[in-house]
């Protein structure tokens, strides 16, 4: 298993010490990562989904499906899919949506696009803002640090989910009034802003802690005494040493944001239909629990698999990048 903390595995690794002594840290990490079968599987799944998301229009075109095309012929008079298992057929590989006959595979593919986009953007902005503020607070200390730390305490106090949901409609309206295009662009902008508001804190705390420790280290002292300015020290000397924990944390938060988008859409406060989203599909499918359970399981399982793949990948990364593992092996 991929757990960082498994002492026995560390023991195994130490046997290899002599053969890898001359490798760079990056190389060391990669070697460790490669041996983790679960992480490799996770990586495979994630790459697969990324591929699908990027080439969604092309893929659906090749298969000959569309996320919006209605197919009345695939439904019976009551709007339920013809045939067993939610209307799975040669034409619709994963069946059709009850009521409209839209192709579920096509909607899943476009939904993946949205989920991954949201996950990536959310992770990127929360990471970068959290990192910059953490570096500043950790390096400058004093009032700036106190202010930012208290601010992070305050943010942590808010019930983030309730607040996000509560402000979704008025927040979107306000953005629209400010000129963001109506509908999903405004809704997504809102969600990203709120995610940023609540999400930077985790990164901020970790980076701040690390920076506080690193700024006392010899190489920073050396740079300082040779006349380097704070900008240089923060971004050139300290920041490069933080990539390990940052990547580990970011790879944990990405799947969380993917699930978050689905969850908000499920509650009806995320993506606005008729745009395809996994959360909206799940919300709709609940109505057909009895009549068409396949419709519930397909998007649900897809979401589960993607989130799990991300977790496996992130644990593999954490293992591979963990400095403790480094020390143990190099020693």
């Amino acid at each position: 298993m991929t757990d960082v903390l498994s002492v026995d595995e560390r023991g195994d690794d130490s046997l290899l010490v002599t053969s890898i002594e001359s490798k760079s840290p990056k190389r060391l990490s990669w070697d460790r990562f490669k041996r983790d079968r679960f992480a490799i599987a996770g990586l495979g799944v994630v790459v697969f989904f990324l591929f699908i998301a990027i080439f969604a229009p092309l893929i659906t075109k090749i298969i000959g499906i569309s996320p919006n095309a209605l197919d009345r012929d695939s439904l019976n008079d009551y709007g339920l899919p013809n045939g067993r298992f939610g209307g799975i057929s040669g034409k619709h590989w994963l069946g059709v949506e009850p009521g409209t006959g839209r192709d579920i595979l096509a909607r899943l593919i476009y939904g993946a696009r949205l989920s991954l986009f949201v996950g990536l953007v959310a992770t990127l902005i929360t990471t970068s803002v959290g990192m910059v503020l953490g570096l500043i607070a950790g390096y400058l200390r004093g009032r700036v640090d106190t202010f930012l730390s208290r601010l992070s305490d305050l943010v942590m106090t808010f019930p983030s989910l309730i607040l996000t949901i509560a402000l979704v409609r008025p927040g979107t309206q306000r953005l629209e009034a400010m000129g963001v295009p109506e509908g999903n662009p405004a809704r997504l902008t809102y969600l990203m802003l709120v995610t940023l508001f609540f999400g930077w804190v985790g990164f901020f705390r970790i980076v701040r802690g690390q920076t506080l420790a690193l700024r006392e280290r010899e190489f920073v002292e050396a740079a300082r005494s040779s006349g380097a300015g704070p900008g240089h020290i923060i971004f050139r000397q300290i920041a490069p040493n933080l990539w390990g924990p940052i990547i580990a944390l970011a790879s944990m938060s990405l799947p969380a944001y993917v699930a978050y988008e689905a969850a908000l859409s499920f509650l009806g406060v995320g993506i606005i239909a008729p745009t395809a989203s996994w959360g909206i599909m799940l919300q709709d499918s609940v109505h057909f629990y009895r009549a068409d359970p396949t419709y519930f399981f397909i998007p649900g399982a897809t979401l589960f698999v993607l989130v799990m793949a991300f977790y496996l990948l992130s644990e593999g990364l954490r293992d591979a990048l963990d400095p403790k593992n480094d020390r143990q092996q190099v020693a």
């Binding site: 799947p255 699930a259 689905a262 799940l282 989130v307 977790y311 644990e315």
Partner: peptide, 11 residues
Amino acid sequence: SVVGLSFPTFF
């Protein structure tokens, strides 16, 4: 635990 972690609550 990994399976448990991978479940979105609502699902």
